[in-house]
Design a protein around this nucleic acid. Structure first.
Lengths: 143, 143
DNA sequence: AGAAAAATTAGAATCATTCTAATAAACAAA
DNA sequence: TTTGTTTATTAGAATGATTCTAATTTTTCT
């Protein structure tokens, strides 16, 4: 999905998510998926849109992010209290979080092994495993 | 009321955290640490306190939770947007999160192996690694 | 086109959390 | 103990992210 990224691609994407391809959803999809992996907050996506002259309300940004998330196009992640990031990479992977700057970076899923998973209560299944490696400035290592 | 031994224990605990042993902090410490491991929200701790006839403001609950966290007596964890849990278990371990009920349960730290940690940018150190295994009702397993 | 369904919107409402600035309690010294 | 200084507590206001509401506009279907 690198070149030949035109409106039609996004029309299809949005349709396959079971949503009507409105101007707002197409613009947001383009911003989210056109330039590779991203980790965005709703506020940032909204102001980015306005900067690009795309008129869309914050409520619609939230609605769309949740709809895309439900459709499996995005993954929501909460890294600290008070704000959600939406990750355009929905494959198995984890995250490096820079505590000072708030920057979030992907870590390939095979860098982390989950072993001896505890027994789950009957009838329960794993829906997802989130791993967040928090890093900050400093010389030594602590756990 | 509480017996002298218990109270003294908490006076020491609070003092060693560099804080004055006030009535509020001692009550909260008792609630947090008297009955084994807990995962509490500020709101819950507050209403629990009021139920027990301990008068304390919500602001003080928040202040105290953060002070205890900074002193290493608690660990703050964010499992979904909008609320923080405070964990009285500060040893290396991870979490099982029941998405439907919001229940949080500890997983021994040695059940999860982090291998091939990605290279960190120069001067950065790992401050903490959070692993949250999200489970829900259902038959099959997904990753 | 016209009707029905779905989407967008501004602004109000909500919820957890933090801030403010005034009052009260704890501590150290004499 | 009393006094002065520092630190805590508090009610209530403020904040910030998110959700809701109810009205308007778009999209889709026939």
């Amino acid at each position: 999905m690198q070149n030949a990224v035109d409106t039609n691609d996004f029309v299809e994407l949005v349709r396959q998510a079971g949503l009507r391809p409105t101007r707002q959803r197409l613009s947001l999809a383009r911003q989210l998926f056109m330039n590779g992996d991203r980790h965005v907050t709703a506020e940032r996506l909204h102001s980015e849109s306005l900067d690009q002259g795309i008129s869309v309300s914050l409520a619609t940004v939230y609605n769309t992010l949740h709809q895309f998330t439900n459709a499996g196009l995005l993954r929501e992640l909460v890294v600290d209290a008070g704000r959600s990031y939406f990750d355009t990479n929905v494959s198995a992977h984890h995250h490096l979080y820079f505590e000072e700057t708030g920057e979030l970076r992907d870590v390939p899923g095979d860098n982390v092994a989950i072993e001896n998973l505890p027994m789950l209560p009957h009838g329960m299944k794993v829906s997802r495993i989130d791993v967040i490696i928090r890093v900050k400035n400093g010389s030594a290592e602590s756990s």
